[in-house]
Computed example of a mutant assay.
Amino acid sequence: MPSPKTEPVHLTGEERAVLKSWARGRSLEAWRARRARIILELDGGATIGRVAELVGCSRTTVGKWRARFAADRIDGLEDAPRSGRPRAVSDEQVQALVDRTLHSKPANGDRAWSTRSAAQAAGMSQSTVSRVWRAFGLKPQAIDSWKLSTDPDFVDKVRDVVGLYMNPPENALVLAVDEKTQIQALDRTAPILPVLPTSPAKASHDYVRHGTTSLFAALDVASGSVITEHHARHTAAQFIGFLATIDKAVPKNLELHLVLDNYATHKTAKVHTWLLRHPRFHLHFTPTYSSWLNLVERWFAELTCRKLHGSAHRSVTELKADIQAWINQWNTDPKPFIWTKTADAIFESLAAYCTILNHTTDQPETSDSGH
């Protein structure tokens, strides 16, 4: 049966360009591209039946979008707004829940709100409380650890270290240096069961200790490669030995700037004497309680998560060999850790913490009865 005659569709140049971009766009929704093709085919003179055949839809669909376009042009091709289910929780209730979470404690004496206690106090469901908390980034049960530095030279040291990371000196190598001490060779009392479908690897909760090692590491901030050395202890003598290893590994024409923490072995008279004989070494100390400023700690976290966590070793020799094999593999394709936060941004963050701390100290905690 032939298609009924309808008024032809006539596009302006601008409309045609928009619809062609919709029809070609791979990132747009499929429904938008189909509707654009329908109108473009109609503009080309095709009948409703022919368009349905070309696009792969029913005549009713073609007629619907032709009528919508005739009435509202391109805006008519958008989905009409849907009413949806009315909101069960008002903005005022959400605000009250957020305020209660931030400024009060449960009446039952718990340290922090749970979804159950907050839902009971607010007269909401647990799922609603959970959605509101996620929307506002609230995690009442979580606690992050932090500590303010008491170093009187905190500001100068932060500017010094961050300056090395973000604007390193020419003809020099910046190395973040530290020791990861007391790495234990632990062997499980039973073999570790492998990963299976729907089941993670399983290890016995108990283990046997077979000794420890200390890993000295110097992370090249620019390239991400590391110089490492194992020692049974981490005294000044071992630290000097590691400095000598660095001295041999790095070309003599480069100055060496080492970022270090304030561990006592880094500041002994013997270390000072060694440095006087090796003037290309320049030590830069992080402020006290500020290990987060030393980028090698980030590399230690990679070592722990990707190699040491959950591993088993029957001797210190086996542990050291396993660590060294992983380090060698890391150095074949090292990945630097890029420092992006300026010293001023760090000071602003700490000032915000101090403001919160002062406010918390001044305001006593209140308990919420839920009424």
Rank of each mutant, 00 (worst) to 15 (best):
K270A: 14
Q329N: 14
W326D: 02
L303I: 11
F285Y: 15
H309L: 10
Q324S: 10
F300Q: 07
L275A: 02
K307C: 13
H313K: 07
L308K: 01
A269D: 13
K267W: 02
S291G: 13
L295F: 07
G310A: 06
V316H: 07
I327K: 03
K307N: 14
G310D: 00
H278C: 05
K307W: 10
S291F: 05
T332M: 11
H313F: 07
N294I: 11
L276Y: 02
F281N: 05
T265C: 14
W299E: 03
A321K: 15
V316Q: 02
C305A: 14
L293Y: 11
Q329K: 10
V271H: 02
S290H: 09
H278A: 07
F281A: 07
V296C: 05
T317K: 13
E302R: 13
H272R: 15
Y263A: 15
N328Y: 06
P334R: 03
N294D: 14
N328G: 09
G310V: 03
F337R: 06
S315M: 04
R306Q: 13
V296A: 04
L319A: 01
L319Q: 04
V271Q: 05
N328M: 05
S290K: 11
K267V: 04
A321C: 09
L275S: 05
I338P: 11
H272Q: 10
R298P: 00
I327C: 10
E297N: 13
I323P: 01
T265V: 12
A325F: 00
F281L: 07
D322N: 13
K320M: 07
I327W: 04
K335C: 05
K335A: 06
L308S: 06
F337M: 09
A321L: 09
T317V: 07
L283G: 02
L308R: 06
A312N: 08
D333F: 06
H284E: 04
V296M: 04
S315Q: 04
N294A: 12
P336M: 02
S311A: 11
I327S: 04
P287Q: 06
T332R: 15
L303C: 11
P336A: 01
G310M: 01
D333N: 13
K320R: 13
A312G: 12
G310I: 08
K320W: 00
L283H: 05
H284W: 01
A264V: 09
S311W: 10
H278Q: 12
N294W: 07
W274F: 14
R280T: 05
W330Y: 03
L295H: 12
F285K: 06
A264Q: 12
H266V: 08
A312W: 00
K270W: 00
S290L: 06
V316S: 06
S290M: 08
L293R: 09
T273M: 03
K307E: 15
S315R: 10
T304Q: 13
P334F: 06
P334K: 04
L283Y: 01
T286N: 08
V316I: 07
S290F: 08
T273L: 10
A321E: 08
S291K: 10
T265I: 09
C305M: 01
W330C: 09
F337V: 07
K320P: 01
N328C: 05
A269Q: 13
F285V: 10
